[in-house]
Simulated scan of single mutants.
Amino acid sequence: MSGKRKRYDEEFKKNAVKLSYASVKTIREIASDLDVGEAVLYRWRQKYGPDGNKTRYATLEEENRALQLENAELKMERDMLKKQRPLLCEKPKVIYGFIENHPEYSAAKWVKFMNISRSGYCAWKKRKDDKEKKEKTYADKIKKIFDESNGTYGPDRVCGELRKRGFTASYKRVRSIMENLGLRSIHCQRRQRSLTDSRKARGDDYENLVKDLEITGPFQVLSSDISYIRTTEGFEYLCQVKDVVSGIVLAHKMSDRMKEELVAETVKLAVRRHRLPEDCIFHSDRGSQFTSDMVKTLLNSIKIRQSFSRVGKPGDNAWSESFFANLKKEAVHWRTFRTRLEARDAIFAYIEGFYNSQRIQKRLGYMSPAGWLKHHLHLSSLSVA
């Protein structure tokens, strides 16, 4: 037997009632013959008479139902009137928003009650949904770029990357979306311990060749410095040599000891990997590793001039200072390196896998150092040809 409730039309009900009055059978027998409930047949007899016409009871029942419906409509209109009273002089967009925020009544009832265009509301709703969909897609792009930067990009760099990928980008809009998504760059302030010991390098022999120098092209000036990376096995010391104009890190070396050999090995690696022109300038602070005879002799042998920051002026070597600040904020802070090897792997991944090849810079037209250098060398080769 099917669990579905049977439905009977008015004609069937009238005929069933007329049969119940005309037949000599009992109500129970007729109900059984018609396959309906006995109570159902009695209910039909209340609504219809022996001739099939509606009884007074049926008329009163319909009137009562109509009155209930009318009362419900009046109550609804009263409630709607209370809610929409402040909107009498508002613009359609405000009214449309009100309708959407009050789903207790259907939109069809609201537009009819407020005497506004239903098609206008539907068109507004479609535009709103389309706009929200576009906003969601745009926010997903921003989050993807942020995640690809390992959480290092702020709104400025995200804007640049969006423009590179062919999208329009407003700093204000991107910043607002990032705030709403809780995307915040991991850059933070952290006091660093200075590693520079310049007590033996305070004479006039340590000239600053880059002060007031106009730096116009790559490999004209190189900047170098040493910083430390904390691990549970002790400090690891990182030496890097970078090109000032392109910002690319030409070479880096790490060691558990901060000796002049660390600087010398890093310079040798930079020379092997890149064709450094003669008379380019190698700039550093006055740390004992850089003022050592070993480093001086090496630089003289490859015809690279050595330059030093002034005493107490770390800003003279801001190129390396800035690099280490970014590296610490983006790859070191908030991490604990259990071994020296783990730290070395992380630093290599950051410099070679991200900083040189992917990390865009505003001053380079939102290009990576490697990308900018390749573009510059290509343009230079075309101009020579």
Score class of each variant (00 low, 15 high):
Tyr355Pro: 13
Asp293Thr: 06
Asn356Gln: 09
Ser301Trp: 04
Asp279Tyr: 09
Glu330Lys: 07
Asn326Thr: 13
Ile281Arg: 02
Tyr355Arg: 12
Phe337His: 04
Asp293Lys: 15
Arg338Asp: 04
Asn326Gln: 12
Glu321Ile: 02
Ile304Ala: 13
Pro277His: 02
Ser288Trp: 14
Leu298Gln: 13
His375Gly: 04
Cys280His: 02
Leu327Val: 12
Phe282His: 10
Glu330Ile: 02
Gly315Trp: 13
Ala318Asn: 08
Gln289Thr: 08
Lys296Cys: 09
Asn326Trp: 02
Leu276Ile: 13
Ser309Tyr: 10
Phe324His: 13
Met367Asn: 14
Asp293Gln: 15
His375Val: 00
Asp279Arg: 12
Thr336Gly: 01
Lys329Arg: 11
Glu321His: 10
Ile360Lys: 06
Leu276Phe: 04
Lys362His: 09
Gln361Trp: 01
Asn300Ala: 15
Thr336His: 03
Ile360Ser: 07
Pro314Lys: 03
Asn317Met: 08
Leu364Tyr: 10
Gly353Thr: 08
Arg310Ser: 08
Asp345Ala: 10
Lys328Cys: 06
Thr336Trp: 00
Arg305Glu: 11
Met294Ile: 13
Arg286Asn: 06
Leu299Asn: 11
His333Tyr: 15
Phe323Thr: 06
Thr297Phe: 07
His378Gln: 05
Glu342Asn: 02
Ser322Val: 04
Gly365Gln: 07
Asp279Ile: 00
Cys280Ala: 08
Val311Trp: 04
Ile304Gln: 11
Leu299Thr: 12
Gln358Asn: 03
Trp334Phe: 14
Arg310His: 04
Arg344Val: 11
Leu327Arg: 06
Asp293Pro: 02
Leu364Asp: 06
Ser320Met: 12
Ile347Met: 13
Arg310Met: 03
His375Gln: 12
Glu278Trp: 01
Gln289Gly: 07
Glu321Leu: 03
Glu278Tyr: 04
Arg335Phe: 14
Gly287Val: 04
Ala331Phe: 00
Gln306Asn: 06
Asp316Glu: 11
Glu352Pro: 08
Ser381Lys: 08
Ala325Gly: 15
Asn326Lys: 10
His333Ile: 10
Lys303Cys: 10
Phe337Tyr: 12
Leu298Ile: 08
Leu377Phe: 06
Pro277Ala: 02
Arg344Tyr: 06
Ser288Pro: 00
Leu341Arg: 12
Lys328Met: 05
Phe324Trp: 11
Leu299Cys: 14
Arg286Tyr: 07
Phe348His: 14
Phe290Glu: 12
Pro369Val: 05
Phe308Gly: 07
Ile302Trp: 09
Gly315Tyr: 11
Arg359His: 12
Ile281Ser: 04
Lys296Leu: 13
Gln358Trp: 09
Gly365Ala: 03
Asp316Lys: 03
Ile351Ser: 14
